[in-house]
Design a protein around this nucleic acid. Structure first.
Lengths: 138, 138
DNA sequence: CGGTATCCCATTGGATACTG
DNA sequence: CAGTATCCAATGGGATACCG
C-alpha cells in the first residue's frame, strides 16, 4: 500500500473500467482508479472502513478494534484513505493529544459497498466451506 | 495470495464479523472469512471476478483482458477462486489444450458485489480527484 | 496519546524457461 | 494452449525505538 504517488492521469483522459473492459483492456495498469481500489481493498483498508461505519474512532480505538494491525500500518492506511478523501482526520490540540477519524460522506458510500461484500462473504461462508470440502474430496 | 492453507476453523466455531465487531475483536486474524476476503479483494481477484461477469473465458482471453497480469499470478489466483468455489474450471481434452473459466452461482454473487464497489469507485473518481487536489492545496 | 523513523524479514509477484 | 518451475526484485508489513 502507501501508494503516495498522486493518482496518475488527468480528469479528462480517464477511461472507465467498463469502457476498458469493452476494449478488452480491463485496468491495464495506468488507470487512475487502480490507486483508490488498492487503498480500499487493501488488507487493512477494508477493515478500517467497516469499523468506521460504527462511528468516529480514535487511533487507539481502531487499533484495539482491528486486532493484529500494527501502529505503522494503521497510520499508513489511514493516511491513504484520508488522501483519497474517504476518511476525515480531526486533531484536537490538547495534552495528551486527541485525534479522531470519521468517514466522509464519500467514505460512507465506499464503506457501505465494502460492507455489502464482507456481509455476503460472512453469510456465504457455510456454503463456501461445504464446497471446499466437496472439492477436497474430488 | 495463494493462501492454499485450508480455511481455519470449523463451521461451528465461526464467529461473525459483526459479532467480532461488537466484541471489539474485528477480524483478529483467525477468522475463517479472512482467507476468502483475501482471495476476493486481492489485486487480481477483483479484476478476474469482474472480467468473468462478461461470461466464460479461456485462460489466454483473461490474460489479454486483464492487462499486466503474469501467467503465474493468473493461474494462482484462478486456483484460489476455484478452491473457494467461486470459479468453475472446465478442461476439454483436446490438442491443443482448451480450458475455460466461468463464475459459479456463488461466484456470480460475489462478483456482483465487487462490481458494485468498482462501479462506485469509477463513478466517484472525479469527486475523489477534486478532493485530492483540495487536500493537496491545504 | 498519536504518531514517525529505522531496520529487517516474509511474502508478493514479474520474467524467463520449460512441459504435456 | 495452458500451464509449472525457478529465480530474483519489489513490496508489505512487523518490532522496536524514539518524539511532540
Amino acid at each position: 500500500m502507501n501508494t503516495r504517488d498522486p493518482l496518475p492521469g488527468a480528469l479528462d483522459d480517464h477511461v472507465s473500467l467498463k469502457e476498458r473492459l469493452r476494449r478488452g483492456e480491463l485496468f491495464s495498469g495506468d488507470c487512475p482508479s487502480r490507486g483508490v481500489l488498492k487503498h480500499i481493498t487493501s488488507r487493512w483498508g477494508v477493515l478500517i472502513l467497516v469499523a468506521l461505519l460504527a462511528g468516529t474512532h480514535r487511533f487507539s480505538d481502531l487499533r484495539r478494534k482491528i486486532g493484529g494491525i500494527s501502529e505503522k500500518m494503521l497510520a499508513q492506511t489511514l493516511q491513504d484513505l484520508e488522501g483519497d478523501g474517504l476518511v476525515i482526520r480531526k486533531s484536537y490540540d490538547v495534552v495528551p493529544p486527541h485525534v479522531d477519524y470519521t468517514l466522509s460522506p464519500l467514505g460512507l458510500e465506499a464503506a457501505q459497498r465494502v460492507e455489502a461484500l464482507t456481509d455476503w462473504i460472512e453469510s456465504s461462508l457455510p456454503r463456501i466451506m461445504e464446497i471446499r470440502e466437496e472439492i477436497q474430496r474430488t
